[in-house]
């Protein structure tokens, strides 16, 4: 049994052991209060490293190639924000942060925390990494970017011949791996492992977790 306070409505619930495919829901507001993960830390680390490897070609290689007046020009993901960094810095920084910085940082922080748990090394700043991960999940917008690529393609079809570049396939692969990671990342599970280790070392701690 584990006592959990719902972060949405402040209701106290006691939940039994949750198997891997199930989630625990709050009795008052029906939000998910506890989620288990399908993947253990090594699998998570492997997925994150895969995604980080795909990141580079997905961001650098051309997503869309435009054929106009016998010239073919490719456009990569990072070209957009770099183009108007000086003329319109607010838009450029927001786009760059949501499409590049946040997803990469999120993958790095999940990879790092998985690695720490895997090799049983618990540095003092690990809680800060967990905190960063939770904050970044809301700012990683690769799925929104995917839809905006599709919207742009259908807008651009009126102007010129369009080809999907090689970067697009890398981007789709990155999106699939990234979605798998976000859907299966469980903050609760990582904290459980962290606390178990904490309790072994500091048995004098008189708090119920």
């Amino acid at each position: 049994m584990k006592t959990i306070i719902c972060r949405h409505c402040d209701m106290v619930s006691k939940i039994p052991f949750i198997s891997r495919k199930h989630v625990a829901k709050c009795s008052r507001c029906n939000s998910t209060v506890y989620k288990n993960t399908k993947f253990n830390p090594p699998a998570m680390l492997a997925l994150c490293l895969t995604a980080l490897f795909i990141c580079y070609p997905a961001f650098i290689l051309p997503l869309i190639s435009l054929h106009m007046l016998k010239i073919t020009e490719g456009t990569a993901l990072i070209d957009g924000p770099l183009m108007f960094l000086h003329s319109d810095p607010i838009v450029a920084i927001t786009v760059f942060f949501c499409a590049v910085v946040a997803p990469v940082l999120l993958l790095l922080s999940i990879a790092y925390s998985s690695l720490c748990i895997m090799i049983n090394h618990y540095p003092i700043y690990l809680p800060k990494v967990f905190k960063l991960t939770r904050a970044l999940i809301h700012w990683s917008m690769l799925d929104v970017y995917m839809l905006s690529i599709l919207v742009s393609i259908s807008k651009l079809l009126h102007y010129a011949d369009l080809y999907v570049g090689i970067g697009f396939y890398f981007f789709v692969a990155l999106l699939l791996v990234d979605m798998t990671i976000i859907a299966n990342y469980s903050n609760d599970y990582y904290w459980k492992l962290f606390h178990q280790r904490n309790h072994e070392h500091h048995n004098q701690l008189k708090v119920n977790c």
Partner: peptide
């Protein structure tokens, strides 16, 4: 944020 991404893709293209 969709519209911002579309603007960034369109201007880059």
């Amino acid at each position: 944020v969709l519209d911002l991404f579309v603007i960034s893709i369109m201007s880059a293209v």
